[in-house]
Design a protein around this nucleic acid. Structure first.
Length: 272
DNA sequence: ACATTGACCTGGGAGC
DNA sequence: TGCTCCCAGGTCAATG
């Protein structure tokens, strides 16, 4: 469920509550996530102070002086700050309790998420070290995207969702960015022109920035760290709008499948 | 190296 | 009401 804007919304929501706070207790109710939660996480984390909370791709990194806890929300994961006790429910798998009694609670019905500890520099971890540039970073530019797309035979939509090319662009924002840049999602990546690369990079950055500003997109169950939904859904041009009129030209939005994922686009605004 | 597909899970909604 | 089927904001591993 969460793409970069939702993860960033979660990051900025939890950071003020847990930065510079000392971990008092770790409660693990179910360690069966995408990978088993690191053994003896309580021993590793208890007594440590969270120096800062950062984000790399869709991972949240909780830094201490002796290691880093990194968390992925998968498709249905969620982090909440509890300032008063609440009984744990069915999918509340992990609580990190701080010395001031604030609780960071990880919930994940589908258990595609991850909660892992590393004492190495986190960006060198095998799950992180192969990732492409951040979409909002300066190194993600038209020249980069154009060069990387040469000779690539996948569709441009599949291409920009490849985390080795650029991270953070998930199923919603891929369709949205392609609409904004007027590029057909089935265009072969190798056929992207330099001009289209410029428009697409700008569209990805703008879409993600606006979604972050709106607190992410809530279609069904995304909630921020305080339990509130994101408001970007009302700004979506095409996603989940099949058969409805294009907000730009009125033609019905089409729904197709690419790599087993739904893609939405306007056949009039986005010609191949 | 690149492309495609299956796998991991649970819950909700549509259709019968 | 209840059953079955399909779908879902991700991404890794296995296979050509």
């Amino acid at each position: 469920m969460p793409e970069l804007p939702e993860v960033e919304t979660t990051r900025s929501g939890i950071a003020p509550y847990i930065e510079n706070q000392q971990v008092k207790q770790v409660v693990i109710r179910d360690s069966r996530l995408r990978w088993p939660i690191t053994d003896n996480l309580d021993e590793k984390l208890c007594g440590k102070i969270i120096q800062s909370v950062s984000r790399r791709a869709k991972y949240l990194l909780l830094h201490t002086t002796e290691g880093t806890l990194f968390i992925h929300l998968g498709m249905s994961g969620r982090l909440r700050i509890l300032t008063a006790f609440q009984p744990a429910e069915k999918h509340d798998h992990v609580d990190i309790v701080f010395a001031n009694d604030i609780i960071l609670r990880f919930t994940d019905p589908r258990r595609f998420g991850a909660v892992l500890w590393t004492s190495e520099p986190p960006l060198q971890h095998p799950l992180l070290n192969h990732l492409g540039p951040e979409p909002l970073g300066e190194d993600f530019d038209a020249e980069y995207l154009f060069q990387r797309s040469r000779k690539r035979q996948v569709s441009i939509k599949t291409f920009i969702m490849n985390a080795e090319i650029v991270v953070g662009v998930g199923n919603i924002y891929a369709s949205e960015s392609l609409f904004l840049s007027a590029i057909h999602p089935q265009l072969i990546a190798a056929k992207l022109t330099k001009k289209q690369a410029e428009k697409l990079v700008a569209a990805i950055k703008l879409t993600l920035e606006k979604a972050i500003a709106a607190g992410g997109t809530t279609l069904r169950d995304f909630r921020d760290s305080e339990g509130k939904p994101g408001y970007f859904a009302q700004e979506l041009w095409v996603y989940a709008r099949q058969k409805q009129g294009c907000k730009q030209c009125g033609h019905p939005i089409e729904l197709i499948r690419q790599s087993q994922r739904a893609t939405y686009f306007c056949p009039y605004c986005q010609k191949i």
